[in-house]
Nucleic acid binder design. Sequence first.
DNA 1: TATGAATGAGCGTTCATTCAT
DNA 2: TATGAATGAACGCTCATTCAT
Lengths: 192, 192, 192, 192
Amino acid sequence: MKNSKDFDKKEAIFQAMLELISKHGFHSSPMSEVAKQANVAAGTIYHYFKSKDELICALYTRLREKFVERLFKTDDSTKPFKDRFRIFYLQMIQEAIKNPKEFYFLEQFLNSPFITYIPKANLQVIEQPIYDFLRKAIFTQVLRDIPPKILVAFVMGSGTSIIKLQLSGEFQMTSSDIELAFFTCWDGIKKS
Amino acid sequence: MKNSKDFDKKEAIFQAMLELISKHGFHSSPMSEVAKQANVAAGTIYHYFKSKDELICALYTRLREKFVERLFKTDDSTKPFKDRFRIFYLQMIQEAIKNPKEFYFLEQFLNSPFITYIPKANLQVIEQPIYDFLRKAIFTQVLRDIPPKILVAFVMGSGTSIIKLQLSGEFQMTSSDIELAFFTCWDGIKKS
Amino acid sequence: MKNSKDFDKKEAIFQAMLELISKHGFHSSPMSEVAKQANVAAGTIYHYFKSKDELICALYTRLREKFVERLFKTDDSTKPFKDRFRIFYLQMIQEAIKNPKEFYFLEQFLNSPFITYIPKANLQVIEQPIYDFLRKAIFTQVLRDIPPKILVAFVMGSGTSIIKLQLSGEFQMTSSDIELAFFTCWDGIKKS
Amino acid sequence: MKNSKDFDKKEAIFQAMLELISKHGFHSSPMSEVAKQANVAAGTIYHYFKSKDELICALYTRLREKFVERLFKTDDSTKPFKDRFRIFYLQMIQEAIKNPKEFYFLEQFLNSPFITYIPKANLQVIEQPIYDFLRKAIFTQVLRDIPPKILVAFVMGSGTSIIKLQLSGEFQMTSSDIELAFFTCWDGIKKS
DNA sequence: TATGAATGAGCGTTCATTCAT
DNA sequence: TATGAATGAACGCTCATTCAT
């Protein structure tokens, strides 16, 4: 089956690149190594991606979309917003902790000059669900009335930072620690 | 004067590397280019630093120390903690915005495999002032009683994220926006 | 019809290679591009030709034969030799100018190490008509008595050079210019 | 001595590239091989030349200049023009035969897409002496009154072709053959 | 100390060719 | 016959590092 084989190879290449970059960084992840780990020839990668940069960018887009999607996997819009936000915040932390490679790759990419290769419009589309989620809650006066972009930055930044703390191995968070983190965030953003 | 010349060259090398990496990333900042921008010969860099990696790591340590130091430059321990924290938070945001190259370099480094080259103990020493500042406030029941490391991550993570928002050019923060960000953070961490 | 299809594909491949090489040279004309322009699969080319080199050599032989043939297309052996030679010389220049791709390919090939792949005997067979044409005229004392090979070289070399001048775009030859070129050549080679 | 070493290396690289290309063509002359034959490291070539293409173009300019210069090495402007032209024509043929590598390289380059990389103005400057030499003789009514560019093309083209004949090994020219070739050319171009 | 020419391992990428379908 | 995905050797080139001066 051509399609399934295609899928397998592309997927294997993505996976190999993810593994290498999350561990060694962009420039210690040579294409030859990617090929080896993906069990394809070096040249094969170039049937699927124009260049190393394009592969890395495609991987970012793909992983970021997947990550955002997961944040709302367990959302239940019939619940009170506080509960929904709690689920969202915990989900963010837990998903990242369950997928450290993805998380490291995303953070590394986001904080590198690579990020400038992705058109801002594309980035916005990917982040839209988060933005919408919080903006509506500002509108319905559940959340503090501050510019939504600041709110998103605040929430995601604090979460990201807590994830890094946990993944660094420097501090073992219990689930009640995570709960505390949620309350800290919530008390900051809620309409008082 | 040997020391002063040493200082000048080392400083020039640091500055050149900072400029290049903040703009182009680690692996688009060749030593030859650093040398050119620092007005020294390529070989000279190796009198001051064992390797490119060591130079980058030294630069990180140096900039991170400077950054933390600046956070407390305007601290006044006689004031109520809330005021002190406000100054601290605003200072963090403003210093980063005033020094975008430093900020980009630090974030890039922090989110790359390079960070693992710096012994954890050293990192802890550098961050200690922040940790102490907040821990004491927990102890005196001004701040919410959560593990200090989580608190530090929360505060610094939210701040960092807001800085990125501003530096991205995607959102122009007014000083009242920054004030709002401070309140959001404060309401989250204060003892209620 | 197998033969007609064969013919079509082979022809399309020849045409595609000619177009690419005349424009980009041998090593900027990948087989994949040839395949694309010929509307066949890359592998298909290898049903008709053993290798890229063989294809290029076959193309040379083919085009050179066609070119020589055209030189005598309008020959009329009943006319005086001077008239016949005039037609020949003008034909050479005009055919090349009408078919610049063919001309560029032939010249490129002729001046590259590829030419050594073609057995000398084959080359001689192809050029034979030109050789015979001029040798007879020497024999009949119409042309200067110099070794025929030198005569052929002289005539073809001067013609080729004039063609290049015109094709370079550097000089627009009128038909009276071409006539002058003919006289220049003729006065050189005729028996005086 | 820095200058002499520089000279040596650059010269050695030029020589190595010349040797390889004249024998194997552009794309069978890898930089690694050039380095090996020039007794330098691959990277060293890139201190002297930006790229392979630039090296090849520089080599062309250099050799073509040298070649044109040699044509007039033995010129004596006090002699009658016919004698001067004879010397010139014979010199062209003999120099090329003495330096077959240079000749093959120049012809290969001239008939490849590389030639388009060299600005036309530069080419003209190099060829200027030949042009001037013949143009003056047209002006003084020694040579046939045809556009100088055509005259140059005629003379150089016929000469080049005769050189190729000799170098091909297919025909051993005696000095009286060369003399005949000169007369053939002269009778063509002289004012009758 | 300071230089910068020189090194050469290693990179990203290309492309002639093959072969399972 | 025809396909085109896959191969992998080989390419042009970069750049951290060295060392004679």
